[in-house]
């Protein structure tokens, strides 16, 4: 790899960390003009930057507004690079259905998890907010999801998460999906009680959890 290529990837990564949409677009355009591999630019530039941003979030250097702006910079560069991906670059991605459970419309946390999952190479179907349990199940079946991710901020709506797990069991398809839960009032204890596969305390943790759950079986063996 030429030094200048590496340099461009670094600039992409920095543009994301520094929340600079214009720079991200400019560098992405340069990547395209110079015929540099778009896939590697995404991987080693934009995604790497988002990973650093996630790290800063974990360390409480960055908070939600900063992380959202980083992701805007990442998506802006991504929009430029995506049309230049070769078809063999597009590997089969693990699929996630995500949404805020019925009765609740607070979706900041869900949106963060979605962004971080996409950055980490998951294909995410976002149902939005105030979603009845059956819709999660239907969509998961429809797209062949690996993970169903449920979020809520309200104690009054937590039970909707249990309803999703129950419906999966009733339909005899519980083992086809991993169910993960998160949000203000949720805890590991609650996740265990409703029979979810995992609980994540924040967006960064959700990525670790999702990766672990879809990792090849050797870990479990």
């Amino acid at each position: 790899m030429s030094a200048s290529e590496q340099e461009l990837f670094q600039r992409l990564s920095d543009a994301v960390v520094e929340m600079d949409e214009d720079e991200s677009v400019a560098v992405a355009n340069e990547v395209v003009e110079r015929g540099i591999d778009a896939y590697r630019a995404i991987e080693q530039g934009l995604s790497a930057g988002m990973e650093r941003a996630g790290q800063l979030f974990d360390e409480e250097e960055y908070f939600i507004p900063e992380l959202l702006m980083c992701s805007d910079a990442m998506y802006a560069g991504m929009d430029v690079l995506k049309p230049h991906l070769r078809s063999d670059d597009v590997a089969e991605k693990r699929k996630v259905v995500i949404g805020v459970v019925e009765g609740d419309t607070h979706d900041i946390g869900k949106n963060l998890v979605k962004i971080m999952l996409e950055t980490s190479g998951f294909a995410v179907t976002d149902l939005g907010r105030d979603i009845p349990p059956a819709r999660f199940v239907e969509t998961a079946k429809e797209i062949g999801a690996d993970i169903i991710a449920l979020s809520t901020l309200m104690t009054t709506t937590m039970e909707g998460m249990g309803a999703v797990v129950r419906q999966l069991s009733e339909e005899g398809i519980r083992d086809r999906f991993k169910v993960i839960v998160g949000g203000g009032p949720i805890s590991q204890g609650f996740a265990d009680r409703i029979g979810a596969d995992g609980y994540a305390v924040n967006a960064a943790d959700a990525i670790r959890l999702a990766r672990a759950l879809v990792a090849p079986a050797e870990a479990a063996a």
């Binding site: 929340m19 939600i64 507004p65 900063e66 959202l68 702006m69 805007d72 979706d107 900041i108 949106n111």
Partner: peptide
């Protein structure tokens, strides 16, 4: 829109 609102606190 809360996502935009949070970003605009900076931008």
């Amino acid at each position: 829109d809360p996502m935009t609102f949070l970003k605009e606190l900076h931008k």
